[in-house]
Structure formats: structure tokens, C-alpha cells
Nucleic acid binder design. Structure first.
Lengths: 329, 329
DNA sequence: TCAAGATGCTAATTCGAATTATTACTGGGT
DNA sequence: ACCCAGTAATAATTCGAATTAGCATCTTGA
């Protein structure tokens, strides 16, 4: 197997030094650098003849950037059961990475313990990349703290509370989005609300519930929070508008109501808050909002670029777009 | 911005030389290399504390290994319009990469010319990875030739003809798969066949058509090939069994026939040959075969490992599983 | 004719990690 | 005292390209 040509080889063939080849190759004409046209032509001719291309590895060694952005997820991203969740984010990430000319590194080597990958292990490869985008429904707080402590350039997709320091992130503005939904419902006459879902644990859950509480307080209407509720319970409490954190929970409520001969939204309004932990039936178009997943992916990579270039700590929440469904009236 | 740690930094912190850090890191214990347990522990402690990992670029410059496997596609893999095609392959690739402890590098930096990425450009980053899996419906022959010529370790997913040398690949055995389908149809009494689809261009198309021709010849039955055919044309020619390269073409034929009051498979049998260039309706379950995409992804990474370890040129075709649909009778 | 300035190129160094050759030290045996 | 063996670590070099400082050589002008 013929060894790859080096600049040294080209230099020998052209009867010049390696430095000259490099200068010609990079077409350097700054002050202080001069190559006679005749020499330049001779070198270029040898390069043309041999088809020489610079070894990108050696070239990169000189800069301090590898132009590799990492994408960390706690689980494999391609299995179809998970692809639905990850794919829109990754679409945005890929798009923006392409734009800034970086390659994406998927940390598939992170050995999984009990099905979950770990960012830090005895031989963590997280630093292979220039920086890293964190992607997942929830992210281990200890991992976050260590990332911050070790000053590893990263951006989380999804808002994260401080962890021994502010956590750079690009999230969705659930507080405003949920508030807006309640505003709309109130404008339509609703006075009895219920929030169904965890409302705690992950920041995204807490933010939604916070928006809910702010809105009911501002309007002076009734609002209760239950982590899970059957239809009877809700109707018994006089609730006319349900906000379901999980899309599938909302869809289930709609189906249950209709099965019972109730009208949605006639007798009960159901709003979706966008979380899609489980697959949901797609024949029920819930009113609610759309999480700008692709845009979040894009912005995360942009933010990471800023982190890398200026050492900043960007934190940003993107607006969720209202989705006009058929379940609010 | 915090500069990346180097072995020199670690060495300073541990009060040893850079060489010692390297030796400890690589756990070298060959004859002639000795590090006191106490020193080794001290260095490891610093490494643990700082989370240091070797710069993959520098490492790759010196030896040949990163534990990074590249995945090259001519287009973005995550947009939903393409995800259906790529995802099953990538699922297998990710799975196997995880198994062998390698990270995956997606070459998103390859600048696209006219919508298509190029493997080789003025600053191709293909060599960042130890080796590379090529994924796509078709692959540029010049690119293949250059990969072979430059002895870059790679494996193509999908069989490829020689390109200035044998091309390592993991493909699907379309020849046998199509032959088997024809065998079944003949056994059921069919004597007039038609192959609908390109049957040329990509190797996968050519292989399918080859299998078809072999089978009709072996059975001494009628078999025609048309790149595209309306229902009338097929029926007029007396065809009783159609093999459609494209799933969506097959589905369209079934729908057209039924719309006309014909029975499928009563009056016409339609077989799918698995190609899914376009999305197909999922309410028609065509008889045909399943391309083992995930398995191909897995095997491709295994094959790449073999290329890297033994410099072999693995070429392998995986069997396609028969799918018992409702359109053959 | 010789200092000043321009011109054309190269030697040497750098990047980060791996490797080889070499040095420094200790203790035991004679 | 001296040699040898064993141990522990380091200096120096390598990979391929980029960059900077600097060395020749050649013009000019006074």
C-alpha cells in the first residue's frame, strides 16, 4: 500500500523546502511572505501531478479546534421507540452543525450502566469534542454539576436549574406557553381548571405547572393540580378545562369522554402541553402548543458556538407556538 | 475560555514528565517500561480529578486509532423525510458501535455542493475517524475509487461493484430474495410475470432484476421488465404476477386494481421488493421480503472492525426475510 | 562602493501524544 | 572501592503541516 504523500515529498520533487510547499498550498501572500511566480508554478505542477492533499489530521493539530461537536444522550438515539423524541432536536442540531462546518460526535462508547449511559466514567470521552450538546428528558444533576465544575463547554437542550453554577441551556418557554393557554380558555368562559401531570421533577414539568399557577392566580379562577386523574374525578370537581402535561394523557381523556357520550370541547376542554414521553394516538388533534424542537436543536448548537468562542453562559427560552386543535371551546 | 488540558499540564500537576503521563495513560507495562505504583496512582488521580482525555487529533496523528468510527451520508440523516430510510441502518450501526466501544462521527461538515455532500474536498475530514461506514442509496463511483485508491478503511452499506479494486461492503442478497419470490409464485401457478422498476443504475436495482431474470429463465415462464407500467398495460399483456421494486409502486398498483373492482391477489398478485425511496401507504401489506437494514448496519460496523484489524476486504450479502403479506395468491 | 531596502526562500519551532533511548539512582556482591 | 543488575523516570524524537524569524541574494540610490 503506497504511503500517503507528505509535503516533504512534494518539496523534494519540486526542489524546495516543506515550508515553501505549505506557503504555496495556502496561497499565502501576506507581507513578509513571497514566493516567485516561477517557483509557485513548479510546486503547483507537482501537486497537480501527484494529486497531493494535505493531511487534515496534521492540519487540525495546529489549531486548537477540532471542529467536532459532541451530542450526549443517556440512551441510543436511533431505535424507533426513541427516534420520535430525539429526531426533531437532532434535525436542528445537524442543520446548524452543517452550517458552522463541524462534525457531530455521538457518544456511543459511553458504557451503559443499567441501560443508562454515563457522562463521566473512568475513561470518559466527553472531551473528545470541542464542546457538547446535552439531550434528554432529564439530565443527571451530578453530571451537570461536574460539567460546570470542570468547565467543559456544553449546552443543555431544555432549561436546567443551577448546578453549582448557572447551566447554559436552550429551552422552551413553558411558563408563558401554559399561561397563554389558560388566558385563551378564560377568555372563552372557563373558570374551573385542572392541571394533570407530574408538575415536578424535571424543570420542564415544573415550568409548566408554574405557568399554570401564575395564570389561575392572575385571573382569579379555580385551578387544581393532580398528578393523575380519572375522568370522573375531574367532572365531579366541576372542572371544565383540563391541561394535560402528557399528550397521550390528554388524548386518553378525550377518548374516555367521548366514549361516555360527552362532547369535547362541548362538555369538557382538553389542552395538551406538548410532552411526548409516550406515543400518542394521532387521530386526536389536541389544542395546545408545539415545542419548537428543531429550532431548539439549532439554537443549542449556535449557543455552543458562543460558549466556545466567548466563554459565555447562554441561557435562552424559545416560544412555543399555539396549536389550534379541536379540543378547546 | 479554558484551554484544553494537555498531557504537559497533567504532568506538571503530578510532578512528572509528559512521557510518564503517556505511559500511565496507556497502561504500558512492557519490558523496559516501569512506573512505580505510587507515581502511577498520583498521575491517575490527577487525570481523574481533571477528567483529562487525550486529544484525538494528536493521537491520530501519531498512531492510527481514535476509537471513532465515521458515518458518511450524502445528505442529512435526521430530517423526517429521510429518517425513515436511514434510521434502521443507523440503529444497527449505533448498536454495534456501542458494543465495540467506539464513538460515531457524523460528517456533517462535508460541505454540500448542489445539495449533495462530498467525501473529498479541499479539506476533507474523512480521515478524522479510524474508518468509515458509507450509507446511501447510491454512492458516487469516483468517491469509491478514491477511497480505494487512498486506502481509507471503509465499508459500504449495500453491495458495490469494483471501483479500481474490490469495494468492501455489506449488502442484501436481492438476487436470491427475488428468485425465491418468483419460485413461490410459480409454485402457486403463475406463468406470466412482470418486473416494474429501474432494474439498473444502483447495484441494488440491478441485483433485483438479475434475480428476476434468473428465476424466469430457470422456470421457463414469461417475464418482462418495464421501468414503469400502468395497470392496463400489465393486464393487457396477460401478466398475473407483478414484482414492484418500489414498495409505493406496488401499493399503488394494488389500490388501482381494487378500485377497478379487481381482486388482489385473486385477479392479480403484487410482490414488493423492499425499496422504499418514497413513503408508502401502510394499510396495504404487500407480500415480498424485508431488507435486514438494522442487521446490515450492525454487520457493516463489524466488517469495518475487521478491515481495521486485519486489512481485509469483507464482502457479504445478508439474506432478506420473506414477508407473508396478503397480495400473493 | 556600500548601506538600505526589497526579494525569495528556508531553518527551526509549534501543536499533543506516543515511543525509544538514555540517564540517574539504589543496593548487593566481591 | 567497583561493577552489575534492577528500578524509575525523563529527554529527545516522531507524526504532517503551519508559521515565524531570519538568512542569503539582488537592486537601488547617493
Amino acid at each position: 500500500m503506497a504511503k500517503r504523500l507528505t509535503q516533504q515529498d512534494i518539496a523534494r520533487m519540486a526542489g524546495v523546502s516543506q515550508a515553501t510547499v505549505s506557503l504555496v498550498l495556502n496561497n499565502r501572500t501576506d507581507s513578509g511572505v513571497r514566493i516567485a511566480d516561477e517557483t509557485r508554478a513548479r510546486v503547483l505542477e507537482v501537486i497537480r501531478r501527484t494529486g497531493y492533499v494535505a493531511n487534515p489530521i496534521a492540519r487540525r493539530l495546529h489549531d486548537q479546534r477540532n471542529r467536532i461537536l459532541g451530542v450526549f444522550t443517556y440512551e441510543a438515539v436511533f431505535p424507533s421507540t426513541r427516534a420520535d423524541f430525539y429526531q426533531p432536536f437532532l434535525e436542528g442540531i445537524e442543520e446548524q452543525a452543517e452550517e458552522v462546518g463541524c462534525d457531530l460526535l455521538l457518544f456511543t462508547s459511553a458504557k451503559a450502566t443499567e441501560g443508562k449511559r454515563r457522562i463521566f466514567s473512568d475513561d470518559s470521552r466527553i472531551r473528545l469534542a470541542d464542546g457538547c450538546v446535552l439531550l434528554g428528558r432529564s439530565i443527571d444533576r451530578d453530571d451537570l454539576a461536574q460539567l460546570v465544575a470542570e468547565a467543559i463547554p456544553f449546552v443543555s437542550i431544555g432549561r436546567r436549574d443551577d448546578a453549582g453554577g448557572p447551566v447554559p441551556h436552550v429551552g422552551a418557554d413553558y411558563v408563558s406557553a401554559v399561561r397563554n393557554l389558560v388566558d385563551r380558555a378564560v377568555a372563552l368562559g372557563h373558570r374551573e381548571f385542572a392541571y394533570v401531570g407530574a408538575g415536578t421533577g424535571a424543570e420542564s414539568s415544573a415550568d409548566r405547572l408554574r405557568g399554570f399557577k401564575q395564570a389561575v392566580a392572575a385571573h382569579g379562577v379555580q385551578g387544581t393540580h393532580v398528578s393523575f386523574a380519572g375522568l370522573d374525578q375531574l367532572l365531579g370537581a366541576g372542572v371544565t378545562c383540563v391541561l394535560a402535561e402528557e399528550v397521550s394523557d390528554g388524548a386518553a381523556l378525550v377518548l374516555a369522554a367521548r366514549e361516555r357520550g360527552l362532547s369535547v370541547p362541548g362538555d369538557l376542554s382538553v389542552l395538551s402541553l406538548g410532552a411526548a414521553t409516550r406515543p400518542a394516538p394521532d387521530d386526536v388533534v389536541l389544542t395546545g402548543f408545539r415545542i419548537p424542537r428543531r429550532e431548539m436543536g439549532r439554537r443549542a448548537v449556535q449557543a455552543l458556538t458562543e460558549v466556545l468562542e466567548h466563554g459565555t453562559t447562554p441561557r435562552e427560552l424559545l416560544a412555543c407556538e399555539f396549536v389550534e386543535g379541536t379540543t378547546l371551546g
